[in-house]
Amino acid sequence: MSKNDKSGEVSASDIFAFFNEIGIINQLSSTLLARTLPQGVHPSHFGIVNHLYRLGDGKTPISIASAMQVSKNTMTHSLRVLVDHGLVTVVPNPGDARGKLVFLTPEGRRFREESIQRVAARFGHLFKPEHVEAMLRIREDLSSIRRHLDENR
């Protein structure tokens, strides 16, 4: 509800402003992440590694493409980059002779952890205690909104 709106309904400008702030934070944080990644590895590639780490690997390329909201061709290219860097393996799917499954390698797991540590080391000092408190306070709410949006795509 907008500060000026007592009806209980959220205004279009409030919805836009909310997602605009998230989008700008995403752009800024992706740029910070990109500065810490090895040559040829992009934040979108890190996103795939992080997805597999968070939700468990052994996913099909098409399910990862759906989660990342990219085309099958884009996912094929991204997986090739990750395989070339030794971060994932792509193996035949034993349950579907035409399909494949994607697994993180031990190097892929280390890469994720090291990337997070590099970002924290390089940029953690930028945050004042009140910023950290705000991030911790709103993280669960943002996760709830993300889950709701993901369930209603």
Rank of each mutant, 00 (worst) to 15 (best):
P43R: 04
H42K: 13
K72F: 05
E21F: 07
H42W: 09
S30P: 07
L52Q: 05
R35Q: 14
K72Q: 09
H77N: 06
L82I: 01
L79P: 06
Q39V: 08
T74R: 10
N50F: 09
I64P: 05
V81L: 02
L33I: 11
P43L: 04
L33T: 10
T60R: 12
S66P: 06
S29K: 07
I24W: 14
V83G: 02
H51R: 10
L37D: 07
N20V: 04
S78L: 04
G58Q: 02
A65T: 08
H51F: 14
R80S: 02
V41W: 00
N50K: 12
S71H: 06
P43H: 07
T36C: 13
T31F: 15
I25V: 14
Q27V: 12
N73S: 11
Q69F: 11
S63E: 11
K59A: 03
L79F: 03
A34V: 07
M68E: 11
P61D: 06
Q27P: 00
G58Y: 03
D57G: 08
F46D: 05
L82W: 02
M68H: 09
D84E: 05
R35D: 14
M68F: 05
N26L: 13
S78C: 08
S63R: 12
N26I: 11
H51Y: 15
I22F: 14
Q69E: 13
D84A: 04
N26V: 11
Y53H: 01
I25L: 15
G56Q: 07
S66C: 07
N26G: 12
A67N: 14
L37K: 09
R54W: 01
N20C: 10
A67D: 15
M68S: 09
I25G: 12
H42R: 13
V81S: 00
S30M: 14
G23Q: 09
L28H: 09
K59R: 04
V81W: 01
A65M: 09
S71E: 05
L33W: 04
T60W: 01
T76Y: 02
Q27T: 12
R54T: 08
L37S: 10
L79H: 06
H45V: 01
S71R: 05
T60P: 01
L79G: 07
L33G: 04
